[in-house]
Design a protein around this nucleic acid. Structure first.
Length: 259
DNA sequence: AAGTTCGGCAACCGCCTTGGT
DNA sequence: CACCAAGGCGGTTGCCGAACT
């Protein structure tokens, strides 16, 4: 059902996600949001690519996500939406709360494509006005106006996150900017740049070691860069604390990846 | 019972878009 | 304007269990 776990040459894990990985990702995003997918796995203590984390979150771990058991109504809606939108799976997912684009796409390819084709064939062979699907077709307009009210899926965690761009106006690159102060390479920092040596992925901070840490134990946030004595600031509100942490970071030019 | 084929789906890959510099 | 990085999207793959022979 799922790809066998393996590691690429950079030590990035691929394949099926374990329960522990899920829990780490869920815990981190629930706590801090996804402020930067590329860096997130490092802070969450995962040996995964940012893309992989994003995909896992969007398709599987996101709150309110539904799995399997598509209702007749959902299937009908997918078929109607496909008529209108084509293979715009992400757009379709906006109309189907709790369903990811990947799941809709899979459903289409495994079930609905054939069904839609069959219905079309029947439609072509039927006299006009005698068809059940005509009734469905008359729904097209209402689909647009009522059934398909734009129930936009929303990323409440991002919105709630103190680090989200929506709540703090921080750009997605804000942290890269910080890194650039100490990473002088002309290229933007890559995963490998953060790896001081071949043991990078085996470091306790990042690795899937056998010590089952509680999820939060292995999570880091930019604010975690501050020195211990700065942690008294923990009582500050999130934004204030984060900014003071950033200030502290800049002041000390502390780069956790190079230490 | 054993081998083969098929269906379902999680996950990966590569391309495109967007935003920042 | 060009370049780069990150995010997002759609197509495809790989694996496993179920169904079939």
């Amino acid at each position: 059902m799922v790809k066998t776990p393996s590691y690429d040459k950079n030590g990035v894990k691929k394949g099926a996600w374990s329960e522990e990985e899920d829990e780490k990702l869920r815990a981190y995003i629930t706590r801090y949001g996804h402020w930067n997918w590329r860096l997130l796995p490092q802070f969450a203590g995962l040996s995964r690519s940012g893309k992989s984390c994003r995909l896992r979150w969007v398709n599987y771990l996101r709150p309110n996500i539904k799995h399997g058991n598509f209702t007749k109504e959902e299937e009908d809606m997918i078929i109607e939406l496909h008529k209108k939108l084509g293979n715009k799976w992400s757009e379709m997912s906006a109309y189907l709360p709790g369903r990811s684009d990947n799941e809709i796409k899979n459903r289409w390819h495994t079930h609905l494509k054939k069904r839609a084709k069959d219905e079309q064939t029947v439609h072509e062979n039927q006299p006009i006005g005698t068809l059940e699907s005509d009734q469905a077709n008359t729904k097209d307009d209402s689909v647009e106006n009522t059934d398909l009210q734009l129930i936009k899926d929303f990323d409440f965690l991002l919105a709630d996150s103190p680090l989200s761009s929506s709540s703090t106006s921080l750009s997605s690159n804000w942290f890269n900017g910080l890194l650039d102060t100490s990473c002088s390479s002309e290229n933007s920092p890559q995963l490998a740049d953060y790896a001081p040596n071949d043991n990078f992925w085996n470091e306790p901070f990042l690795s899937d070691n056998n010590n089952i840490l509680s999820s939060s134990d292995s999570m880091l946030l930019p604010s975690d860069f501050v020195y211990q004595d700065s942690c008294q600031n923990m009582n500050l509100c999130d934004d204030e604390f984060i900014w003071s942490s950033i200030d502290s970071y800049l002041e000390h030019s502390y780069d956790p990846f190079l230490n």
